[in-house]
Amino acid sequence: MSEVFFRTKDLSTINIMNEQDILNKILDHFGNKVTGNVKREKRVELFATTNTIEDVLLYAKHQLSFIHFTQLSCVDWIEEKQFELVYIIWSPESKVTILIKVRVDRENPVAPNIDYIWRHANTFERELREMYGVQFEGLVGAQDFILEDWIEIPPMRRDFDTAEYAKKTFFDRPGRENARDVRETIRQNSGEEIPEFAKKYSR
């Protein structure tokens, strides 16, 4: 039913670009500085660099009506010694989502600041600065964002061992050192039977 609902406007007649058009336009405009492909329906993937990302975002926003900045996230490719920043933007007209992926060096992660294009990008950038240590040039905002008094390496990096850190910082209650199933222990202590439906989910 939703299919029918969303398709009542025939896209071809009201001159809305499809995924391939959008990709072609961007590739034409930027030449060989940007590569990309259509991932699937309504989803376009682009690969840019720190030098071109601002231009791509501005072009997409002002020429192709991608006015909605959905989010900025980060992937830690520890084996390749790189961070991958993923800028996700969306157009309310063509209803297409573009993922723009930018690789930065893991040792010295610096990316351009884009919060003059979308004001709320500031929030995402501060989060990434705190959680991954990615620096954005000229980013304004308090250094502490969600964490407070954090003195370790940024916690979302893959070389940060959360369980190890929790073990050494917080106090374990005896019997809860790991993720093992405690229902057996509770059964022994209390003498209650584990009901049949609950056994199915035991590890």
Binding site: P155, T162, A166, K167, T169, D172, A179
Partner: peptide, 16 residues
């Protein structure tokens, strides 16, 4: 609050 619950190995929540 007792033992960390499902956040027992989180870097940011206390356990006991």
């Amino acid at each position: 609050t007792i033992n960390g619950g499902m956040y027992w190995d989180s870097y940011n929540t206390i356990n006991r």
